[in-house]
Nucleic acid binder design. Structure first.
Lengths: 208, 208
DNA sequence: ATTTAGTTTAACCGTTTGGTAAAATTTCGG
DNA sequence: CCGAAATTTTACCAAACGGTTAAACTAAAT
């Protein structure tokens, strides 16, 4: 009745503002973003920003919360599931890289946000949807004890996986220059990683 | 004659400004940094910033260049050396994590800089000291052909290594919360990684 | 002691910034 | 068609910003 489409099309002024703010904040950060530029990109008057969202901080908080809530639940669902370890690793890497591919700005935005205002992030923005890795840890310990995988500390394993998934997108421009790739090659390279990271991890876990 | 100490102690006004600018720029970025705050931290008058460094951009450029020149040469030296592959990987991970441990702000600073002003970074700030990974690539290919390590694309290998070294420092606060560690535990954890990443990589490279 | 060059300060300037007030316009129920 | 509520625009403000100027201060040279 409201909207016959599956995805809400940017229609109302409020939505256009949010979209423009999303663009500017993710590209330039809180300090680099200017209210006037957000208004221009939304094609509306600057005063309307304050009419719908009271202040720059409130608007930023809305955008930040939306970004977190888009990224976290999928990750959490995989890592807290009761899949067998190898399948869990496969799916975790798959979904992680998928999400970042579709929203490459997410990791750097979250990291920059935490670095500049940790308390605001953990108190206000981050809901209680933080993934709990304990299940995963016990799974790893169990398979180590059973001799199915080599001895490894589960904390380091998960940090390794997340690092290999996220960092190439964060440091994409630098990687591109370092590897001497064009933008097209780089796109292919990043797509390959879903398979390559999985192989790399599982190969490392082979028992001695 | 100039300075009897090994490390130059912040003495002159010019040095105090540079130090303060280094702090503020690395913590808050170009946009978040304010000239007044730099002056305050240096304990001097704001006009002196423009007396010694002409503008905010020039000052920022000096700081950025210093950071690049501190990080790059050591990395470059290892990766372009003619050490055997396993030893090269060991040393690369060791020096990489050492440098970042002592200057944890470096990766995020470089990445943010590139993301906001790629042309300025690659044209002006980055000297010709960019590491050339071709030697490393051929080494990997040779050992794959000789059956000493399993089949792996060298580009993915080096991206994996850099990711696992750099990302935990970039995302330290998030990792800390996720893993439920205190700051002390986290420090130990990051120190462990020099060994853990090396083991992880070498284990993954074992022939099938 | 006076000059001179280098350094530091206080006061100021034009612009941009986030934000506000009030008028003008649109929307919509009666 | 009218009037009240919601929306949009214009004009404006105080504060903060990067930067400049000219005066004041300091220290060494003559």
């Amino acid at each position: 009745m409201d909207n016959p489409e599956l995805q809400p099309i940017p229609d109302t002024t409020e939505q256009k503002i949010f979209e423009a703010a999303h663009e500017v904040f993710t590209q330039k950060g809180m300090d680099g973003a200017k209210m006037q530029e957000i208004a221009d990109r939304a094609g509306i008057n600057k005063a309307l920003l304050h009419y719908y969202y009271r202040s720059k901080e409130k608007l930023y908080e809305m955008v930040a919360r939306a970004i977190i809530n888009k990224a976290m639940p999928a990750i959490r669902q995989v890592i807290e599931s009761d899949l067998p370890l190898e399948e869990k690793i496969r799916r975790f890497i798959g979904t992680y890289i998928d999400i970042i591919s579709q929203n490459p700005y997410i990791p750097l935005f979250i990291i920059s946000e935490i670095n500049k205002h940790p308390e605001r992030f953990f108190d206000a923005i981050l809901p209680a949807t933080l993934p709990k890795p304990e299940v995963f840890f016990r799974q790893v310990e169990a398979e180590v004890a059973a001799g199915k995988i080599r001895n490894i500390k589960p904390q380091h394993l998960i940090v390794n996986i997340v690092s290999m998934c996220a960092f190439p997108f964060i440091g994409k421009p630098m990687m591109r220059i370092l590897l001497g790739m064009g933008t097209g090659e780089m796109r292919i390279f990043l797509e390959e990683r879903k398979y390559e990271v999985t192989t790399f991890v599982l190969a490392s876990l082979r028992p001695e």
